[in-house]
Write a protein that binds this DNA or RNA. Structure first.
Lengths: 271, 271
DNA sequence: CACATCATGAGGTCTAGACCAGTCTTCGTG
DNA sequence: CACGAAGACTGGTCTAGACCTCATGATGTG
């Protein structure tokens, strides 16, 4: 059973949700119908609204599809439909490759302007700075540079550079929960081309990423990937208009108390 | 009033939803609280579950944020938080540029293998083929190649190439509703470099996109953007595990009736 | 003055029904 | 046998309450 995380004492809709999640992953295939809402009502001894709350959650996640008059069905996996905050290591393993890393640099320094801006900090704020060569099955894939404010994780690099910076941040209660990334293509610099052992082609894919935990920026990172070995898959949603909140009129003295708005990602050289 | 689309006779939760949407766009700023659920209950003479249904919808869309014990607030615009199916023209205008296009080629031909695969059709199926140079404020930005099955829109190119292929498809009832894109970086070919008037740098960003309307692939397109003038912004969500339905055991004779599963995007040269 | 307590009011979960609106099957009837 | 109506499903919307947890500000006390 995959009921994990929703023990008996917990909320009832979570129990129903866990049951359905288990059904989907172990019993049903794409297109199959789940039990009707009324039958789940009896099975769990809960009201229909509670059953619907459980199903609603899975419909929102894209796992199920409702069809009035017919039933509720297992939805086809639409890729992910959202880019995820994954790490190089996770990505590599997902593709069946063995990730590796060589630390090229590891230091603490005052944040230069572009880094400070990306992290919503003052210029000169102490930051950890790590440069690594990332490999997959031993082949160089990218040169990756990361900056993390020292005050968020003072002991981050005490035992050397951790395999996964994200995992290390998570251990310190700084869950990376969302981010934004800017992707460009460029000719690699001579140093990059050498590190990546690129001979004939010169094109690299550059990414600049801001990672947020809650409302605070916890990490800024830049990477250059071998253009001939790396690609990004982006699922696209329909372009429907979005509600835009009214912009607050200038009110001197008014504090929004909402830091870390998404915005421009600095691209300029951080050194 | 922005109540449009939710007339009095319609569902009550839509009336509440429309009221809140109007509030957000005309009265409230980011971080402001909306009226409490119980006060909305009285204002509209509906039950609390109905009010919650309206709020839930806006929370799911990312417009509002709940906070137990405190209230429900206007959420900061997290970029889009999903890549959208936009066209070159829309993107350019959004960035304040004037889009332009020069048709380099326009023909009908039998689909080569990679194109046929991308469109879920037989090799040789007749497809429209359009190659255009896209400009912004007169500057070359990308070379874009599109393939569309002829049977979906036989008269698509009768009056010349339309400004927007997406708009032309929409007019024929083929709403592009989702898609998937593969992004790579590469050295531009000599022809690309000449079309794009690239002198010093050679890196281009290549995209290969499958566009779907409903469950059928309606268009396959490939584009090469000037690496020094183009970038892609990608919002990233938290990396939480996704439910994967059980794979259907081989059942000869069983029909899923579910075409157009997302999958690999062909990258090889289509000519 | 500082701090613990408590009342208030916010959202979170849940019930036991109701009627509406599609879909599909089944069973007469012509 | 063909076809249409009826019934038996499905999910969609909605009510009028209930009790819970959590955040906050007022209040009283040491």
């Amino acid at each position: 059973m995959v009921t994990g995380g929703a023990r008996a004492g917990a909320h009832k809709y979570l129990a129903v949700r866990a049951y359905l999640a288990d059904l989907v992953t172990t019993e049903l295939a794409v297109g199959d119908a789940i039990p009707s809402e009324r039958s789940l009502t009896e099975k769990f001894g809960v009201s229909r609204m509670t059953v619907r709350q459980a199903i609603d959650a899975l419909v929102t996640e894209g796992v199920l599809e409702r069809a009035q008059g017919r039933g509720t069905f297992v939805a086809p996996p639409r890729a992910d439909f959202e880019m995820r905050l994954t790490t190089f290591g996770e990505e590599a393993r997902r593709r069946g490759l063995t990730p590796g890393a060589t630390v090229l640099r590891c230091e603490e320094l005052p944040a230069p302007a572009p880094v400070a801006e990306a992290l919503d900090r003052e210029v000169g704020t102490p930051v950890h700075h790590v440069v690594r060569l990332r490999t997959a099955d031993g082949n160089p894939m990218s040169v990756e540079e990361s900056w993390i404010p020292v005050d968020l994780a003072p002991d981050l690099l005490e035992d050397g550079v951790p395999d996964s910076l994200y995992a290390a941040l998570r251990e310190r209660g700084l869950d990376p929960s969302w981010g934004e990334e800017l992707i460009t293509a460029a000719d690699g610099t001579p140093e990059e081309l050498e590190s990546l052992q690129m001979q004939t082609s010169r094109a690299v894919m550059r990414t600049a990423r801001r990672t947020f935990g809650g409302d605070a920026a916890v990490m800024y990172s830049r990477a250059s990937y071998r253009g001939d070995r790396y690609s990004v898959f982006v699922p696209l949603r329909e372009a429907r208009p979005t509600l835009v909140p009214r912009t607050r009129p200038a009110e001197p003295g008014a504090e929004t108390g909402r830091p870390a708005q998404p915005g421009r990602i600095p691209e300029g050289s951080p050194r």
